[in-house]
C-alpha cells in the first residue's frame, strides 16, 4: 500500500511523509520546507522510517529517528514519527 500524511509543524514548516508498506514499511520519502544538517543525512532519515511493522510504537520510531546523525531544523523526531504513523494507520 502507498499512503502519505502532511503535518504542519508549529514552527510553520511543512513535513510530508509518503510510505509504501505491507506488513512492514518498505519505502519512505520525507519532503518539506525544513532544514537538515548535514543535508546528506536525508537518506539516512528516510531509511530510519523503513523496516518497521505497521504497528510500530511511536517511541520506537522516535528512537530510530534520533539515532540518525542529523540535526533537524524546523521540526523534531516526534513530528516526523507522528506524520509517519498517520501515513501508515
Amino acid at each position: 500500500m502507498h499512503d502519505s500524511a502532511t503535518l504542519k509543524v508549529p514552527t510553520g514548516k511543512l513535513l510530508e511523509v509518503e510510505v509504501t508498506y505491507d506488513e512492514r514499511v518498505t519505502d519512505a520519502r520525507v519532503t518539506g520546507d525544513f532544514f537538515l544538517e548535514p543535508p546528506e543525512s536525508h537518506a539516512a532519515l528516510e531509511a530510519a522510517l523503513e523496516g518497521h511493522t505497521t504497528d510500530v510504537s511511536r517511541t520506537t520510531l522516535v528512537e530510530a529517528i534520533q539515532d540518525v546523525d542529523a540535526t533537524c531544523i524546523g521540526f523534531d523526531a516526534e513530528h516526523l514519527a507522528d506524520a509517519t504513523l498517520e501515513a501508515i494507520r
Binding site: E16, R29, V30, T31, G32, D33, F34, L36, P39, H42
Partner: peptide, 9 residues
C-alpha cells in the same frame, strides 16, 4: 526549490 521539497507539490 528548497532542497527537500517535492517538485510536483
Amino acid at each position: 526549490l528548497g532542497r527537500f521539497q517535492a517538485y510536483e507539490d
